[in-house]
Design a protein around this nucleic acid. Structure first.
Length: 274
DNA sequence: CCGTAACCCTGCGTGC
DNA sequence: TGCACGCAGGGTTACG
């Protein structure tokens, strides 16, 4: 499930391979993955464009191209974008192939078909649907402890659903939200405005830590995730609470519980996270 | 403003 | 061994 650390890892791994290359041909086997513009103009407009720079915003991967164009990609649950030799047979569920001018190509696959991509003018990127309402980047300098403190004071919602709200903080998903709350020893159902100053400080540090460590470990390969070279990450070995229902809490030994919040599985330790 | 739920989709775990 | 079924999940949208 690509969250911020996974998308960042895809970005970095692809960047090392495709910068400066151009698209020679686009094969769109499943047109519905393209939202804007129409699938035909998407393929047409991409052809011949040169890859200038890669970026990331929240869980969105950005491929900046020549002629003021930017490709916007969201991998959702099971999407993969992998740099592959052109003669390599496409794996099952490959929905698009972007051929490059060096004999390689980008294979886009997605088992559950939830992922989406689009193309926009780079100078209108901020207005692109999905991007325009995104919240703060949690690893940027402007995400400060004071910012988090100030924002939490305005929110009367449960902290876990709030962490998943992409218009609040961009890039946290179910895994890293649970991990951050566990490290900060905060109950996922606690109302945001009721967090103490100490809890807020711990949460701030935990968010930064779990995301940074996730990137250092090249992402969490829980099930489907691989980077731009098709390689799995290792952060799943460092998870302390996610998917550990019934297992002992690594902090105190009490059994990890699972509840449902905002329609998502939420793992936490009832003893450490009061 | 807030919370809940449906939707999209396939693979996998469970029960029989 | 295999079938039917329900669940999982990110983000968007709809609705109360």
């Amino acid at each position: 499930m690509p969250e911020l650390p996974e998308v960042e890892t895809v970005k970095r791994s692809l960047e090392a391979q495709i910068l400066g290359l151009s698209f020679t041909e686009i094969e769109l086997m499943m047109p519905k993955i393209v939202k804007t513009p129409s699938p035909n103009s998407f393929a047409e407009n991409l052809t011949g464009k040169k890859i200038k720079k890669l970026g990331r915003r929240g869980k969105y991967l950005l491929i900046h191209l020549s002629d003021n164009l930017t490709m916007v990609i969201h991998l959702r649950m099971t999407g993969r974008l992998v740099y592959s030799p052109q003669d390599k047979p496409a794996e099952k569920h490959t929905h698009a192939i972007f051929k490059l001018d060096n004999g390689f190509s980008l294979h886009y696959s997605d088992i559950r078909q939830f992922g989406r991509m689009g193309l926009t003018d780079t100078d209108k990127l901020e207005a692109f649907p999905g991007l325009k309402d995104l919240g703060i980047e949690p690893l940027n300098e402007n995400f400060t402890r004071d910012f988090l403190k100030r924002e939490l004071k305005r929110k009367r919602t449960k902290i876990k659903p709030l962490l998943l709200d992409q218009t609040f903080i961009a890039g946290l998903g179910n895994i890293y939200a649970d991990e951050a709350l566990h490290r900060a020893r905060i109950n996922p159902e606690k109302i945001a405005v009721n967090l103490t100053a100490r809890e807020t400080a711990r949460l701030y540090q935990s968010i930064r830590d779990v995301l940074s460590e996730g990137i250092e470990n090249r992402g969490t390969s829980f099930r489907d995730y691989v980077d731009g070279n098709g390689q799995a990450g290792s952060n799943q070995e460092s998870l302390r609470v996610y998917d550990r229902e019934g297992k002992p809490c690594l902090g105190c030994g009490k059994t990890v519980a699972r509840i449902r919040l905002a329609g998502r599985s939420t793992y936490y330790c009832p003893k450490c996270q009061k």
